[in-house]
Computed example of a mutant assay.
Amino acid sequence: MAMTTLKDIYLDQLQDIWSANTQSLQVVTELGRAARDKDLSEALIAGGTGISDGIAAIEQLCADHGIKPNAEHCKGMEGLVTEARAHGLSNDIADADVRDAAIIPQYQRMVHYALAGYGTLVAFANRLGLDGDAAVLQKCLDDTYDGDRRMTQIATTGGVNQDAVA
């Protein structure tokens, strides 16, 4: 698709965030299974549910605009997923507490990519006067921020990082 208007970029970015979400969902599920800490595992499971909800929301927006969500492959998330597997699920991490500490930044890197995508999409939708789209995307953005904050709390006030020190 030729990019000649903000709407063209908006539609391309919808497809990009759909691709990013579909790629991250599998590895977030894997990270959730690998996590030993109960709070961390539950947060990752909730994150997977949030990603699934985001995928469904983006699919609906794409349908509303007459485009297929899978027309774009997000190479940025592809790299983040590769990194999450290499650094969060590596067999080289022998200690479960250390693995839990390693999982958090891998998850948050993927989340931060989603935050940038959703934030941009909200701004574009608002500029284009797509109020319904903006509301849907704002909910996705808010939910993603909530997941990021929860993960930060687990890392800073939970026992994950403390346990990994020992």
Rank of each mutant, 00 (worst) to 15 (best):
Y118G: 10
G76T: 15
L89T: 04
G76P: 12
G88M: 00
Q108W: 06
R150S: 08
R127W: 02
A114P: 11
L6I: 09
V111G: 01
T4S: 15
D163Q: 13
G47W: 01
D92E: 10
T5W: 00
C62F: 01
V165Q: 05
R33A: 04
Y107H: 13
R149F: 01
I51L: 08
I45E: 05
T144P: 13
W18A: 05
L40N: 12
E42D: 14
G159E: 03
L130H: 13
G48P: 07
M3D: 12
L31Q: 01
D163W: 00
D12T: 14
L6G: 03
Q108N: 12
A101T: 07
R149G: 12
L121Y: 12
T82F: 01
E83H: 05
A35K: 06
E78I: 03
A84K: 11
R33F: 02
G129C: 00
T22N: 03
Q138T: 15
V98T: 13
L25C: 06
H112M: 04
T152W: 00
R36P: 01
G54C: 12
E42A: 09
I55Y: 07
Y118Q: 09
Y145E: 13
G79P: 13
S24R: 10
T156K: 15
E30F: 01
Q162I: 10
L121S: 08
V160P: 00
G129L: 00
A101N: 10
G132D: 13
Y145P: 03
M151Y: 08
V122M: 09
R150V: 10
V98P: 05
I55S: 04
N126S: 10
F124R: 02
G159M: 05
A134K: 00
C74F: 03
V165E: 04
D131H: 14
R33S: 07
N161Y: 04
R99T: 02
V122H: 14
N91V: 04
A56S: 12
A2E: 15
L61W: 09
V136P: 08
D97K: 12
Q138P: 10
S41R: 14
E59C: 12
Y145M: 14
A101Y: 02
C74A: 11
G79A: 13
G50K: 07
Y145A: 07
C74H: 09
